[in-house]
Amino acid sequence: MLDALTVATAVAALALAAWCGWAAYRDQPTKDWHFIGMAVVTLLALVQLVVGIVQLARGEKPEQGTTIFVAYLIGAFACIPAAGFMSLAERTRWGSITVAAGGVVLAVLQVRLYDIWGG
């Protein structure tokens, strides 16, 4: 369950990165549709956070430690909203690039989460 979510979130994050990268390439700021995309990716990360905590509550142990696992889950959840707010403050292509960078960061976090859980 968690592994499937990790893969889904990573793919969604990369898709978001490509989409916002495309907007930046066309010299456009992030628009409503981009924010809906960010909401979807954030929702996936939130589900992952909940599922991760449920798994911990059921007594399963991540390979590299519970603290690190929870820290990464929270970081993954906060990643896209933070970048989204920054793109609200920066209504140029650079706001779009920031969200694209956020997507890449989230994808990297997912790879790390996969390792930490012990996939």
């Binding site: 933070a82 920054m86 403050a89 920066e90 140029t92 650079w94 690039i97 920031t98 960078a101």
Partner: peptide, 22 residues
């Protein structure tokens, strides 16, 4: 200092702060 490319810099630096400090 955070107009245009500066915003991207703040983001990447922010990520590094969280990464290194935590």
């Amino acid at each position: 200092l955070i107009g245009g490319p500066g915003m991207l810099l703040v983001w990447v630096y922010g990520v590094m702060v969280v990464g290194a400090v935590s």
